[in-house]
């Protein structure tokens, strides 16, 4: 009879868990070092449950989500839980640092708008919409990593949709977790490998097949950003949400105003094929799709 630790997603040296959330597949690898399999699985399941709970609160396609409630009550003050408040605060930070290229809240013309945040509450401008998809996966990974560390996990790798990742401690062979940046090879050079230890990673790129239905929208214009290339950001663990926003801003050629926090996060960035600064956006209006 199969055992949980011998399931199709497991190896003998690690627990592997996965769930579908936020339009992506989240996976986590938890090396067994010093743990009983059942204990480590329970820790991982707790983190998975956290991600699934955040998905229910943050999905704009779910009528029961808190994000849907905020949009429904646009113009009014809406109380939110602490994790959603953290998400929205980060969204406002990213809007400011990206010069408005990234914005979770936007008006009917697709241009970004500011949210009014007071402790534990948010007010969206009348008729505005809210899409936290650009940073939700990263923030969910930040929170899940915190949850794992709360329970004493010292080694883990988590990713959401293969575009946002968080690495706790070292990986197999006592070496940093190694991630290949697919699509970041330039002029025939090999695609770079990134080594992650207590670090986060976010990649923003648009596959050619997705152009015209892209998720990267320049909120300065409300149009699809000119995304000819891609951007990746690596920083300190806990910065995955911010990394998501930063990578998005860089991928569409927008700038990023570094602050003391950015210096502490110690960003390393890669960009490929980003051709212009402060790109005005394509002439094609943004079409958003459920992802």
């Amino acid at each position: 009879m199969p055992r949980p630790s011998d399931g199709p997603g497991d190896r003998t040296d690690s627990i592997r868990l996965a769930t579908a959330a936020m339009g992506a597949r989240f996976e986590m690898v938890l090396p067994l070092t010093g743990w009983r399999p059942e204990d480590l699985r329970a820790v991982g399941e707790d983190a998975v449950a956290l991600i699934e709970g955040l998905h229910r609160r943050w999905s704009r396609f779910d009528r029961a989500s808190l994000v849907s409630a905020i949009v429904r009550d646009a113009g009014q003050r809406v109380r939110v839980d602490s994790e959603t408040y953290r998400l929205l605060t980060l969204a406002e930070t990213a809007r400011e640092r990206s010069g408005g290229a990234f914005a979770a809240a936007y008006g009917e013309d697709g241009r970004g708008v500011a949210m009014e945040l007071t402790p534990g509450a948010v007010r969206l401008p009348q008729s505005a919409s809210l899409d936290v998809g650009g940073i939700a996966k990263g923030v969910a990974l930040d929170l899940a990593a915190e949850r794992l560390q709360d329970e004493g996990v010292e080694r883990a790798f988590l990713h959401g949709g293969a575009s946002s990742a968080a690495a706790i401690g070292l990986g197999p062979g006592d070496a940093p977790w190694r991630v290949r940046l697919a699509g970041f090879g330039v002029d025939g050079a090999p695609e770079p490998d990134v080594e992650l230890k207590d670090a986060c990673l976010s990649v923003s790129m648009v596959h050619p097949a997705e152009r015209g239905a892209a998720h990267v929208i320049d909120r300065r214009t409300g149009l699809i950003g000119r995304v000819d290339g891609a951007a990746a950001c690596v920083g300190r663990l806990g910065g995955a949400g911010l990394a998501d926003a930063r990578a998005t801003a860089l991928a569409i050629g927008a700038g990023w105003k570094d602050t003391e926090e950015d210096h502490e996060i110690a960003w390393t960035t890669w960009t490929v094929g980003v051709t212009s600064d402060a790109a005005p956006g394509s002439a094609e209006p943004a079409r958003e799709t459920a992802r």
Binding site: P4, W35, R36, E38, D39, R41, A42, V43, E45, D46, E151, G152
Partner: peptide, 13 residues
């Protein structure tokens, strides 16, 4: 799901 709660030491478990 395992229906377990994370707990490494016997007393917590």
């Amino acid at each position: 799901t395992s229906w377990r709660t994370p707990a490494r030491d016997p007393a917590r478990d």
